[in-house]
Structure formats: C-alpha cells, structure tokens
Design a protein around this nucleic acid. Structure first.
Lengths: 233, 233
DNA sequence: TAGTCACTCGCACACTGTACGACAAGCTCG
DNA sequence: CGAGCTTGTCGTACAGTGTGCGAGTGACTA
C-alpha cells in the first residue's frame, strides 16, 4: 500500500513559481463553481497560466490533488469540545457544521467515497468527534457506532440535498420555475401513484430551502433521540 | 425539461436483433462486476458482438441507459405491506432490503445522485414506502420526513460500506491482509491522535462483514426508535 | 566556467461518448 | 415482380480526458 500524499515530504520551493498551495486553491475554486466534471488538469493549468503537465511537478496525480482538496474541506468542520456544549448539542452542532461545509463544496460526496480519508484534517476531525461521543457517556463499543451513525445520516441526507440543488443549478432555471417544472413532470409520471402525488403536493408548501433544512433537522433530531437512549451513564 | 426515457415510446422490434432488454442486462452484468469505470459503450457493444454505435439505435445516450439500470435496481427492493408487518418492522425490513440491493449493485450510489429517479420502479417503491409510513401513524407532514430520513440513513451508511468493500476488492488483497495493512497505515498516521488509535483497535475485534452489519443495524435501530416517538396516533 | 538542481512544457498515447452518413435486409404496396 | 420505406448496423471522425517521456531553461554552487 503506497504512502499517502500528506506524509511524502517535498523539496523546498526556492524561487517564485507554481506552488502546491496555489494549485490547491485554484482547483478548489474550479471545483466549487463548476463541479467535478469541470475540473481538468488542462483547465486548471490554463487558469494558472501554466502548461498542463507543469502541475505534475508539484502534485503526483490528479487523484492526489483531490485528496488534498478533500482534506481541506474536512478542515472547515467544527466539532465543539464536550465541556462547552454537552454531547447532544455538540453533536447537533457538528451535524450542522458538516452539512454546511458540504453545501459549500457540493462536489465532496461525489469523490469522497472513492478513497480513504487519512489526511491530517480528517484525522483531527475524527478524533474530536470521538472525544465528544466518549464524553457523552456511550459504552466503549458504542462510541464508534454512534459517531458513524451521525456521520452517515448527515452525509446521506446532504448528498441527496446537494444532488437536488445541483440539478436546479444545472437546469439554468430559477428555483421556482424548476420546482414547478419538476412538479409537473412528477405529476405526469405519478398519475398511477396517488401516494406520490400527495407527497409531492405536501412537499411544496414550503420553499426549497426551508424544506431541505426541515428535512435534515427532523431526521437528525430523531436519530439523536434514539442515540440518547443508548447512553449508559 | 426533456421527457424522461420511460415515457418516450418505442417502435416495435420486428426481427431478431439487439434489444434494449438485452443491452440493459449485459450492461448490468458489466456494472456489477467492473463498476462504473468498467462500463463503456465500446466494451458493452463488444460483449454483445455488435458495433459500438449500434447501441445508439436502441438507447439514446449512455445516461439514459444508466437511468434504465438504476430503475432496474429500484425494482429489486421490498417494501412490506403495513398490515403484514406493522410499521416498525416493515421499515426495518425495507432498510435491510435496500441495503442488500445496493450491496449487490455497488455502483448505484456513484450514479444515482446525479439524476432524478422517476422510473416506474422508483415511483412504485416510493409509493409503497409512503403507504407504510402513513399506516404507521405519522402526521401528514411527517410521513415524507420520516421516510426520507430512513432512506438517507440507509443510503449514507451503505455508501460508506460499499466504498470500503470496493477498496478491499480493488486492492486485490484478501480481506484480512487488507484490514491489517489499512490498520498499519492508520496507526502510523494516527500516532498523534490517540482517540483514533483506540477506535481503530476497537473496530477490528469483529470481522469486516459483521462489523459493517453491526454498524448498519445500530444506527437504523436508533433512528427508528427516535422516529417512533414522533408517531402521533 | 562547468555542472547540477528546480522547474516548465510540447508531444504523444490510449481511452471516452456520440454525431454523421453509408449501407443492408425485410416488408408493404402498386 | 419491382420500388420504396422502415428498421437496424457500423466505420469514421471529433473533441475531450489523465499523464509518461524527454527536451529545454534559468539560477545557484563549486
């Protein structure tokens, strides 16, 4: 198993030139605004006024670059110290922080599952999360289970949320017209499924934004309720 | 917004030839065994002893083909009738059925979020799910929220699970050696993170398979507990 | 002045989805 | 029987991808 990119050491950069930091920063901007398919090594290089293959001196492969970008996102996520917030509200805060980081970087779910996250920020995040759940009073064995339940729920929900938002964005239409077009299409297809019709109608009472937030909060709250009963002391 | 592929009608197939069903079936086999990157139109055509572009007579684009494949998977998932199982165990069964379908088709999470699921099987699945939660006694507004919480949790968890299993598969190593190699690497990187060290050690007491199943069940159970307190009647 | 290191970059390869247009086989109609 | 339409196949071509290779450049050291 090959050594991950964070621990491979680099030579010192002697004069002004492309830098890994610069590359990461620009790549992040492209990814945030144009998504995974919008990031190519050629385009990235062009935006840096460089030749495509020059990047390869600073970053071994595109995959490694993406590893760096993912860890950058992990670094944006808060996990409160348990003594400041208490377990329950700490976990709530963590969930919200994770959600908003992913909303800022909607490309994350598309790439994060294809590789292990072993970067420094990922490690630190995991570590602080475990501290929080441990302080919450879970049995040894349940600490990991509880923590990973929360992460999975949040990522699962946000993944769907991001997918919806990206579909709106790519359609080029306004949020309202997209919703109404989508509605029309769903209604047409759902004519034999009265349950779906009702559901679609129910879901459009709020705006898209509040609807998605409500959805997220409802499930997270329920999950935390369920987890709370597993606290042993 | 363009009409989705299920409702666009086709001409009748007059003589023996390639068929959409055949293409879907072969594509499914490739996808299941080689994953998303393993499916190309040329390879698919080759396996059908056809020219690459011949496929395009039967299927408008590769994306449309993938839409068909996704809906095929939705068709494999059970949702019990509420009178047979009751809400709680019905939801449990649904979750397990969804999980095992995704484990059979590990490519699903990679592609399902990039498009809306409006195929007939998706509709029917959604519809039966809603019936189950409605019968469970959730308030009108909560039916959708509860159902989508469960789906998100399951998909989130299984997404991570599939990612792990795929990493093992692609490494070419046996499960045990992969786990131990991964462990070694994590330990090396995690030296400054004692919490992670402990967690890694805790997680390796069971085999990979039981560990992943336990993880899945723990969170699903907690979530359903939390949802149960939201039932109003 | 010679040599070495740090860095840039053009070219080329194998691969992708799919538009286009040429071609063939079978059916229907006159 | 023959013409023409429909159904279906497929070779070629285009624009795009990540990246290995090797040549080239400028600055610093000995």
């Amino acid at each position: 198993m090959k050594e991950p990119i964070w621990t491979r050491e680099r030579k010192a950069p002697p004069r002004e030139t492309l830098s890994r930091e610069q590359i990461v920063k620009t790549a992040m901007a492209i990814l945030d605004s144009e998504g995974v398919t919008g990031l190519s090594m050629r385009k990235l290089a062009a935006r840096l006024d460089a030749g495509a293959t020059s990047l390869y001196w600073h970053v071994p492969t595109k995959d490694d670059l993406v590893d760096l970008l993912i860890d950058e996102v992990w670094g944006e996520i808060d996990v409160p110290e348990p003594e400041l917030a208490g377990w329950r509200s700490g976990a709530l805060l963590f969930g919200h922080s994770l959600r908003s980081a992913v909303l800022r970087h909607p490309w994350l779910p598309e790439v994060m599952y294809t590789r292990p996250s072993l970067g420094p920020n990922a490690m630190s995040l995991g570590s602080r999360g475990l501290v929080l759940f441990e302080a919450g009073g879970f049995a040894d064995h349940d600490i990991d289970l509880a923590m990973s339940s929360v992460m999975s729920y949040v990522l699962g929900t946000v993944n769907a949320e991001v997918a919806t938002r990206e579909m709106v964005r790519k359609s080029g239409r306004s949020e309202e017209t997209w919703v109404s077009e989508m509605l029309e299409q769903a209604q047409a297809v759902a004519s034999e499924y009265p349950e779906m019709q009702k559901s679609v109608r129910r879901r459009t009472s709020l705006g898209l934004d509040s609807s998605l937030t409500e959805n997220f909060v409802f499930g997270l709250d329920a999950l935390l309720d369920g987890l709370a009963t597993r606290v042993t002391k």
